[in-house]
């Protein structure tokens, strides 16, 4: 048997194993699901045909969710970097302040921060909608982005800080010894090396942001959850279960690929961060 032949046999063997495993799993799930469904359907009149007709209308909400998450992702990274540098600053008091920010925000539910900002600060600051280059952003989007950015920045800050600290201090010494300023050393030597450590947990944070954005429905942002909820309100109650399940399906559609990406990245770049885990929960 040639070497090539052996390889092919191994490949066939493995994929056969995999397909067997997947099919048994599917069978079990199907059985479970069928039983559960029958049980539920006794007391609940499922009307999937009517509910699924509404599915395409979810798409504008989906877009909004992605938009707000993208904005928050960029903002949180920038702001998080600043806070991380603050946490690592040689001035103790700057460290304390940055630490205070991180520890306070992380211990508050996102919804509470959102409520304080949107229903409290907004009235006080008077910032409603923002018009940039002729495009108007409504208050929920503006405040939603701001809140999500500031909230997730605290998680990003910890991840970036861990990443920076993972680069050995001798690298900073070598860079400074050649005359580089702190910022030059950060930019050319430390941060490029820190990025490998920072990226895997950051995907977790992005997943968390997508999930967190569901709460922005409360302040009226027309993202995925709000769109779904608004859709069946005029239609009639009986569809809630189907609608919510479809809604969950949409989130799974976005987040599951992202979490596979995250796992793949962790494998390639090799880190597993608890902070990333926490942030990926999206409270």
């Amino acid at each position: 048997m040639s070497a090539l032949g052996l390889q092919q046999d191994v490949w066939w063997g493995r994929s056969l194993q995999l397909s067997w495993r997947v099919s048994v799993l599917c069978a079990i799930l199907f059985a479970l699901g069928w039983f559960a469904y029958q049980g539920l359907a006794d007391s609940y009149d499922f009307q999937w045909d009517k509910a699924l007709r509404f599915a395409p209308r979810y798409h504008s909400g989906l877009l909004m969710t992605l938009q707000v998450s993208a904005v928050a992702a960029v903002g949180a990274t920038v702001f998080g970097l600043l806070i991380a540098l603050g946490r690592l600053s040689p001035w103790v008091l700057v460290r304390d302040l940055a630490g205070l920010y991180v520890h306070t925000i992380r211990n508050l539910p996102f919804i509470v921060v959102m409520l304080v900002f949107f229903f409290g600060l907004r009235k006080g600051v008077g910032l409603d909608s923002v018009t940039v280059f002729g495009h108007t952003f409504e208050a929920p989007f503006v405040w939603g982005s701001i809140t999500l950015t500031l909230y997730e920045a605290s998680y990003m800050a910890e991840i970036i800080r861990a990443g920076i600290q993972s680069v050995r201090s001798e690298q900073m010494e070598a860079a400074r010894s050649m005359g580089m300023t702190y910022l030059q050393a950060m930019r050319y030597v430390i941060l490029p090396q820190a990025i490998t450590v920072i990226i895997p947990p950051s995907t977790g944070i992005f997943i968390g942001m997508v999930k967190e954005s569901a709460l922005l429905s409360i302040i009226g942002l027309p993202e995925l959850t709000r769109t779904a909820v608004d859709l069946f309100a005029p239609v009639r109650r009986p569809y809630t279960f189907e609608f919510y399940l479809i809604l969950a399906g949409y989130y799974l559609m976005i987040c599951v690929p992202l979490s596979f990406l995250s796992q793949w990245l962790e494998g390639r770049l090799g880190t597993h961060s608890r902070i990333g885990e926490e942030a990926a929960r999206g409270i």
């Binding site: 997943i207 709460l215 799974l252 990926a280």
Partner: peptide, 14 residues
């Protein structure tokens, strides 16, 4: 994996 990729808010509704 299911519960890690769904917002709790949506789950509560479900």
């Amino acid at each position: 994996h299911t519960f890690r990729n769904v917002p709790f808010y949506v789950f509560v509704l479900i």
